[in-house]
Structures are given as C-alpha cells and as structure tokens.
Amino acid sequence: MTALATLLIALGAVILVIAGWGVVTLPDALSRQHAATKAGTLALAMIAFGAFVAIPADGFGVRLALILGFLVATLPVASHLLARAAVREQDIPTDDVPRIGGSRAPD
C-alpha cells in the first residue's frame, strides 16, 4: 500500500513541477492558463489520492475529498474569468474567429 501511495505522490509532484515549467515556457497568457488549470488539478488530485492511500484515517478522506471538490468546482470558474480578462487586457480580436459545428441538437 505504501508503495502505491509513494508512486501516486511522486507522480503528482512531478506533474506539479511540469505544470510550473509550463507556466514558464508556454508562449502566451492563454496557453499558460491551460498548464496551471489542467495539469495543476491533475497533480493535486494524484497527491490527494496518494495521501488517502497512505493514511486512510477518518478525518483524512473527508478533508481530501473536500479539497478536491472545491478545486474542481472553483478552478474552471477562475480560469474562465481570467481567460476573459486576458483577452480584454490584450485586445485580442474575437469577432472573426472561425466557428466549427452547427448549433443543431445532437442526435
């Protein structure tokens, strides 16, 4: 069990480092957003699961689930607002953006 926990936590830590590296290396603010939101969420999810496997005490599971729940609920909203702010701040034109797919309901 501890081997699995160590593996999960180490993988999560590596993904966290890669997310940080992505924030440094990606070319513009909107791309960096992807690194922080998606890779960050995945890293914290793995670390939390690893911690739960390592110490499956009562209080741990509930609190780790709370952390993950709050993150999954709040990060996309924050990312959405931030992306919109970035587009407004840099005056990126959005009117002539190509549209893919119609608005028909799926079958």
Binding site: A19, T25, L26, K38, A39, L42
Partner: peptide
C-alpha cells in the same frame, strides 16, 4: 492533464 503535460 496528461495531454497538457505532453504539450508542455
């Protein structure tokens, strides 16, 4: 998550 990591 893994797709983003691959791109980074």
């Amino acid at each position: 998550g893994f797709a983003t990591i691959a791109v980074i």
